[in-house]
Amino acid sequence: MYFPVRVPLEVRFSDLDTLKHVNNAVYLTYDEVARGHYLRRAGATIDSGHFVMARAEVDYIQPILFEQQVEIALRVERVGNSSFRTHSEIWANGALAARIKVVVVWLEDGKPARIPDWLREAIRTLETEPVEGL
């Protein structure tokens, strides 16, 4: 599977839990970092519009430990009327650590609104594999 965005991440000491591996909630933070990179590549800015996470699904495959080399890869796999779904993978020392799917909703005036055409076109341009709904 092709991922147009790949972001190297450094595991911070504060990411760890008492078992000395990355806390489960931090995986979503890592995903958010990659999603931010994706949206910037798509031309979004802090003033472009508002996004809110509506759903998150994480499959934890193996723990991530301090000082491991971590990379998160992200793509958009579906675009709806007012939302899009991302698929990402987190890799640690070359091994798959987690798969994440997130649904993000586009808001205008605090309410779900149609994803703008400029963002739809940017997603179409970034993705080399078919995106459902585009």
Rank of each mutant, 00 (worst) to 15 (best):
residue 1 M to R: 10
residue 1 M to F: 08
residue 6 R to A: 07
residue 7 V to Y: 04
residue 8 P to A: 07
residue 9 L to T: 12
residue 9 L to A: 13
residue 11 V to T: 12
residue 13 F to I: 12
residue 15 D to R: 13
residue 16 L to S: 10
residue 17 D to F: 06
residue 18 T to H: 13
residue 18 T to R: 10
residue 20 K to C: 08
residue 21 H to Q: 12
residue 21 H to L: 08
residue 25 A to N: 11
residue 26 V to K: 13
residue 28 L to S: 09
residue 30 Y to G: 14
residue 30 Y to E: 04
residue 31 D to P: 00
residue 31 D to R: 11
residue 31 D to H: 09
residue 32 E to M: 11
residue 32 E to G: 15
residue 33 V to T: 13
residue 33 V to Y: 10
residue 34 A to M: 11
residue 34 A to K: 15
residue 34 A to T: 09
residue 35 R to Q: 13
residue 38 Y to L: 08
residue 42 A to V: 09
residue 42 A to N: 02
residue 44 A to I: 10
residue 44 A to P: 12
residue 46 I to W: 14
residue 46 I to M: 15
residue 47 D to F: 15
residue 49 G to D: 05
residue 50 H to M: 14
residue 51 F to S: 13
residue 53 M to S: 13
residue 53 M to K: 11
residue 53 M to F: 09
residue 54 A to L: 01
residue 56 A to M: 02
residue 56 A to W: 02
residue 58 V to A: 08
residue 59 D to Y: 06
residue 60 Y to V: 04
residue 62 Q to Y: 00
residue 62 Q to T: 06
residue 65 L to W: 01
residue 65 L to S: 00
residue 67 E to F: 00
residue 67 E to H: 03
residue 68 Q to I: 00
residue 73 A to G: 01
residue 74 L to P: 03
residue 75 R to K: 01
residue 75 R to N: 01
residue 76 V to T: 02
residue 77 E to N: 01
residue 77 E to Y: 09
residue 78 R to V: 00
residue 78 R to N: 04
residue 78 R to H: 08
residue 79 V to D: 05
residue 81 N to R: 06
residue 82 S to L: 11
residue 83 S to R: 04
residue 85 R to E: 01
residue 87 H to Q: 03
residue 88 S to M: 02
residue 90 I to Q: 02
residue 90 I to M: 05
residue 90 I to R: 05
residue 91 W to Y: 04
residue 92 A to F: 02
residue 94 G to Q: 04
residue 98 A to N: 06
residue 99 R to K: 14
residue 100 I to C: 06
residue 101 K to H: 12
residue 102 V to I: 12
residue 102 V to G: 04
residue 102 V to H: 07
residue 102 V to K: 10
residue 103 V to M: 06
residue 104 V to K: 02
residue 104 V to F: 01
residue 105 V to L: 08
residue 106 W to C: 03
residue 106 W to T: 02
residue 107 L to N: 14
residue 107 L to S: 09
residue 108 E to W: 11
residue 109 D to F: 15
residue 109 D to M: 15
residue 110 G to T: 06
residue 111 K to F: 15
residue 112 P to G: 12
residue 113 A to L: 11
residue 114 R to Y: 15
residue 114 R to F: 14
residue 114 R to L: 14
residue 115 I to P: 13
residue 118 W to G: 14
residue 118 W to L: 09
residue 118 W to F: 15
residue 120 R to A: 10
residue 122 A to R: 06
residue 123 I to W: 07
residue 123 I to R: 05
residue 123 I to Q: 07
residue 125 T to K: 12
residue 125 T to Q: 14
residue 126 L to F: 00
residue 126 L to S: 03
residue 128 T to K: 03
residue 128 T to Q: 10
residue 129 E to D: 13
residue 130 P to Q: 02
residue 130 P to F: 01
residue 132 E to Y: 07
residue 132 E to V: 07
